[in-house]
Design a protein around this nucleic acid. Structure first.
Lengths: 152, 152
DNA sequence: GGTGAAACGTGCCGCTG
DNA sequence: CAGCGGCACGTTTCACC
């Protein structure tokens, strides 16, 4: 799928604010409203845009604590862990990675005691290295513009 | 700020799809469109909803590779690193954490050679442990419902 | 590019605690 | 009396032709 410069501008804008009228966005980019609508639909259909989500302030919903867990296990337990991740509501993200650790997991919770039970649950089939998150120092949108493309 | 059950339903729904009419959402929850609109505005004003963003498929925009970097450094270099993170476009997220490592960083790029230059840039003031991401195994919305509240 | 339908913002009123 | 929800209106935005 070829993405021209206008497509990249659209992706950039929708990452900053997904709830904005296609009309106003089109005016800024230099596209009529139906043209904008068509491009966005194509980006969705092509899977470039996977969806739109609200960003929630974790602290404001009572999940003021976060931790990063690194999990080391053996290959036969990987499926186990995937199920565990899905079953534990505090687990927000889990990535399978290379290296000595198999997974890196982010979770959010309200009290230190919750972390204890999470670690207990995850340490059954492997070893867990736990780090508390002090601050979400950087959080950026995907830099689509750096890829460039034609100026069409 | 008190969040009742309807607020939590709204947060849950807007995480699944931020681009949906407040009217239809209100109909599903059992609220008129103006009432929905007012609640959403309050959630935004209170900072519970920080914003709305499009989720982009990294592979589809040419950033098919991801890596997790753990950075170990001394306290005096922390500010340096924050600047570095902001300057390197491939860096998507960086969290300051407890433990032997100071930061955990996620970056996305298109070729292994890009990772080399990222690591080179970040290893100047500390040591970097690099793991390639094999797959984003789990990615969940924030579980707002688990906090409960009145059934109003 | 234009048109009908749907969604949004606002003001006013009624209910409830 | 204050807070919250519903109705009605004008305006904007959307989808389709």
């Amino acid at each position: 799928m070829g993405l021209d410069n206008k497509d990249l501008q659209i992706l950039e804008a929708l990452q900053k604010n997904a709830r904005q009228s296609l009309a106003s966005l089109g005016k800024r980019i230099g596209l009529s409203q139906p043209a904008m609508s068509e491009r966005v639909q194509k980006l969705e259909a092509a899977g470039v845009i996977e969806g739109y989500c609200a960003r929630i302030n974790l602290r404001k919903v009572g999940l003021g604590l976060q931790a990063i867990l690194r999990i080391r296990t053996t290959h036969q337990h990987i499926k186990h862990y995937l199920d565990l991740f899905n079953d534990i509501p505090e687990v927000l993200e889990a990535d399978r990675i290379t290296g000595e650790d198999c997974f890196i997991v982010r979770c959010a919770f309200s009290q230190p005691a919750d972390l204890e039970s999470i670690v207990d649950a995850l340490a059954v089939h492997g070893s867990v290295t736990t780090s508390l998150v002090l601050s979400n120092a950087v959080r950026k949108p995907v830099p689509v513009r750096s890829i460039s493309g034609s100026d069409n």
